[in-house]
Design a protein around this nucleic acid. Structure first.
Lengths: 253, 253
DNA sequence: TGCTTGACTTGACCAAGGTCAAGGAGCAAC
DNA sequence: GTTGCTCCTTGACCTTGGTCAAGTCAAGCA
């Protein structure tokens, strides 16, 4: 029904059920996220060194990629699929701290243990760099470390932008901001117009925005009936009035 | 009245009014924050190189240190005083994204322009590293870049922890978590028992916790009458029952 | 074709925290 | 002392978004 799917599509082989499969890497030259991942910042020589320690890993939809407190053994680039990272309170309350898409870097190359959880929202392929070799490589390749520093600052800025959203924006502004971010990210990955696929469900959106599923649903309905967006089957959303959405996101009076 | 002040104290010279004074650095060997700043990660040689580009700058209480969108010309270590960093919405709503104390690194060594605002909460002394020389030094000294990467990850983790607070914690849990963080940071700076000084006012606490000043005040009063803390003159707080405060912060049932 | 299931939507009601307003404490100027 | 000021506290009331419950819709299956 929804024509334009991004993340969930094209798992031609059957790797989603018995996942955690580790395999040798495909050719970097044909990598889907070559222009988006950390590789793009490296020269040919550095890329080759990085490829030397990389392995491909697959995770099924809903599968935990890593857990807080565990050794940071999964660190690398999302090649295919979508990932959510989140923190938990003792009583189970959840805060999603990030949604990651192809090209994004997941996990901490610095801490020895994870500070949050990560879960596959769809069948996911990661290009993973094992801890010890990555540490060594970071020491030997300053450009690699510099690229990681640049990304850490980007992530920090986004997290602080999200603090502003969680601390000071209304429900309507939060949902509008979230959609703006999704459309922007999709655009960066080369997506033009057309509906984008939401790989996460309402509950995960709610946990990202500090709201409940009911409030998210109500605000989406409101945006839909205002003609700002169109919703196709609850997991595909089309942007109809970009300017109006941006105004709502910033807190138009 | 309040005996133990930290940040506001001991400005023996008169540099708070006509601030922005730039001066040569004091001797690093006698630096108050030597054990806390980025220097501690460097060897003697690297420290000397870093000192070579550093200058001291002073800011008066309430003075803006830098603004979002401006060139990132103030980047460095807080030597004395306290700083708040914050983001703004077009209509003036404010979210404090961090309170910085002696030893903390302020500003982005990566972006050419600031992504947030910074303001002195008390007379502040910074050890500033000018943009271009810092960029050069980062390339030449991998340990320096590594230390900045480590701190960026620490900051990111704290920001995500704060997303959890802003998105999912109750008013009581937020205030308790905030106080825990302050006491912890004070401890790290060598503070033992005794009341700690709050360099920020109620409005700034509220803007950090996504609350209003009234709610902050009510929750502080509640903690006070429960005997968890004692408040001396509204800007000094004493921890009476650490365990109970920690339980409240985590969301004790 | 109808049953079951799970995710989403919608409505009615409720409460945590926001808003508005009054009062108090501390402090500097006169 | 007292005036004025700012910041903090407290109380009364209100609003936004949460809670609870019922209804809708699509997919999978017998």
């Amino acid at each position: 029904m929804t024509s334009s799917v991004e993340a969930k599509s094209s798992d031609h082989s059957s790797q989603n059920s018995l996942s955690r499969a580790e395999s040798t890497l495909h050719d970097c030259a044909h990598c889907d996220v070559r222009a988006l991942g950390i590789c793009v910042a490296l020269g040919d020589l550095e890329q080759k060194r990085l490829k030397g320690i990389a392995t491909a890993r697959h995770f099924g939809e809903g599968e935990t990629i890593f857990s807080a407190e565990d050794p940071a053994d999964v660190v690398g680039t999302v090649v295919r699929g979508a990932v959510k990272t989140y923190k938990l309170l003792p009583d189970g309350r959840q805060q999603v701290v990030g949604f990651l898409f192809p090209g994004d870097f997941v996990g901490s190359a610095i801490f020895g243990t994870n500070r949050c959880f990560a879960e596959a929202l769809s069948p996911v392929e990661l290009c993973v760099f094992p801890y010890a070799p990555l540490q060594r490589l970071m020491k030997e390749l300053p450009v690699l470390e510099h690229e990681l520093l640049r990304r850490a600052h980007d992530d920090l800025d986004l997290a602080q932008e999200w603090m502003l959203l969680l601390g000071r924006k209304t429900a309507q502004e939060r949902v509008a901001t979230f959609l703006c971010l999704l459309f922007e990210k999709a655009k960066k990955r080369g997506h033009c117009g057309a509906p984008i696929d939401l790989p996460m469900n309402r509950s995960e959106i709610a946990d990202y925005l500090g709201l409940t599923i009911e409030t998210v649903s109500r605000q989406l309905s409101k945006l839909k009936s205002a003609g700002v967006i169109a919703i196709h089957g609850s997991h595909a959303i089309e942007l109809r009035r970009p300017n109006q959405l941006a105004e709502l996101a910033a807190g138009a009076d």
